[in-house]
C-alpha cells in the first residue's frame, strides 16, 4: 500500500554546469545540465515540499548573467502543472540553507518549515568569522535568514535537532552534519508506513546531486562502482560518502530509490513529462488512490 505520491518538479536549470561541481575531483571533464528542482510529497491529507527553490526577484538576473541559470518559473506556475497552489502546501522540509533550496519561503504562506538547528546555527556562526574565511558563507543569503526569522515570528519554523521520526506519518528526517553543509537534512518516505519498510524513498537534497554520486566509476580503485561525493562541501567529502551509505542502507541498497534532484536523467529512470515551459516533472511514485500527473 503506497501512502504518498512523490514528484520532482523542475523550476529552473543551468544548461552547462561544470562537472567538477557535481563530482568531486572531476576537473576539466566537461559540463552537465543541472536542473533546479523541489519535490512534492502528496498523501495522508498532506501536501509537503522538500525545499522551495529561490526567488528570482532579488538576484535572478545576476544568476542568469553570471552562471547561466535559465528559465526560472514561480512555484505558482510549477505547482499548477500538478494541480496544486502554493497556499495548499502545509509542510516544507528545507534540506539546507543554500539560496536555491531555502530562497523562496515567502511563496508558501500556510506551510510549517522544518530545518536542522545546526544548519542555521552554524551559518550564523560562519557569518561572524573574518572576511578571510568567507568561503564558508558560500551560496547563503542573509536575507533568507531574515525570512526564516519572519517564519519563526509566525510560529511556522521548527528547528530540528538531529533525526526526527514520523514528522508526518511515515516520513522521517535525517541529518548529515558537516557534509554538503553544516546540517544537511535528507528525507525518508516509508511509503508502506511500516517501521521496517520495504518501500522507502530517500529525497537526498544536495547530499547526492546526480546518479554518478552513488554509482560512480570505481575503476580507479579496482571496483565496478563506488560512491563519489559531490564537488561542493562546506564539511567533508568523507561525511558525504558516509551519508550516502546511510541513505543506501535505508533503501536496501536499491540505488534508484535515492532521488537526486539535480539529476536530469530522472526523466529516463521515472515516468516524466516536459511542460510547456520546458521544465520536467518526474513521477517517482504514486499513492494507491492517485492518478498520474505525467500521462
Amino acid at each position: 500500500m503506497a501512502q504518498y505520491s512523490i514528484h520532482v518538479l523542475e523550476y529552473s536549470f543551468v544548461p552547462d554546469y561544470h562537472k567538477s561541481g557535481v563530482l568531486y575531483g572531476a576537473h576539466n571533464q566537461g559540463y552537465v545540465k543541472l536542473p533546479y528542482c523541489y519535490v512534492l510529497i502528496r498523501g495522508n491529507g498532506h501536501l509537503a515540499l522538500v525545499d522551495v527553490g529561490y526567488n528570482d526577484k532579488d538576484y535572478g538576473k545576476h544568476l542568469g548573467d553570471k552562471f547561466g541559470v535559465e528559465n526560472w518559473r514561480s512555484p505558482r506556475d510549477v505547482l499548477a502543472e500538478v494541480g496544486v497552489k502554493p497556499e495548499d502546501i502545509d509542510t516544507v522540509f528545507v534540506t539546507h540553507a543554500h539560496f536555491d533550496h531555502f530562497g523562496n519561503v515567502e511563496d508558501f504562506p500556510n506551510a510549517t518549515f522544518y530545518v536542522q538547528k545546526r544548519e542555521m546555527q552554524d551559518w550564523i556562526w560562519a557569518m561572524s568569522l573574518p572576511d578571510r574565511m568567507r568561503w564558508m558563507m558560500v551560496a547563503v543569503d542573509p536575507g533568507d535568514i531574515l525570512r526564516g526569522l519572519q517564519l519563526a515570528r509566525e510560529n511556522r519554523l521548527v528547528l530540528v535537532d538531529g533525526p526526527m521520526e514520523n514528522v508526518l506519518p511515515g516520513i522521517d528526517l535525517h541529518v548529515a552534519y558537516d557534509s554538503h553543509t553544516f546540517g544537511s537534512m535528507w528525507v525518508a518516505v516509508r511509503n508502506d508506513g511500516k517501521a521496517e519498510s520495504s518501500d522507502t524513498w530517500v529525497l537526498a537534497g544536495d547530499l547526492v546531486y546526480q546518479f554518478d554520486n552513488i554509482s560512480g566509476d570505481g575503476s580507479v580503485v579496482g571496483v565496478d562502482k563506488m560512491y563519489v561525493p559531490v564537488g561542493l562541501a562546506v564539511g567533508s567529502q568523507m561525511n558525504l560518502v558516509l551519508a550516502t551509505e546511510e541513505m543506501m542502507k535505508r533503501v536496501g541498497y536499491e540505488a534508484r530509490r535515492v532521488i537526486p534532484i539535480h539529476e536530469e536523467r530522472l526523466r529516463d529512470a521515472f515516468p516524466s513529462r516536459i511542460t510547456e515551459a520546458k521544465l520536467r516533472i518526474s513521477e517517482i511514485c504514486l499513492a494507491d488512490d492517485a492518478t498520474s500527473a505525467v500521462e
Binding site: 543551468v14 552547462d16 554546469y17 561544470h18 567538477s20 561541481g21 576537473h27 576539466n28 566537461g30 559540463y31 532579488d58 538576484y59 538576473k61 545576476h62 544568476l63 548573467d65 553570471k66 552562471f67 547561466g68 539560496f99 568567507r134 568561503w135 558563507m137 558560500v138 551560496a139 547563503v140 543569503d141 542573509p142 536575507g143 564537488g231 561542493l232
Partner: peptide, 26 residues
C-alpha cells in the same frame, strides 16, 4: 553585481573552468 556586491556570495559557487567558459562548452 558588477562590483561583487550581491546578497549571496557567489564567488566560489563555480570552480575549475566553469561557467565563465560557457562559450567553449557551446
Amino acid at each position: 553585481p558588477r562590483a561583487g556586491m550581491t546578497p549571496v556570495d557567489f564567488s566560489h559557487a563555480c570552480c575549475s573552468c566553469g561557467t565563465r567558459r560557457r562559450g567553449a562548452a557551446e
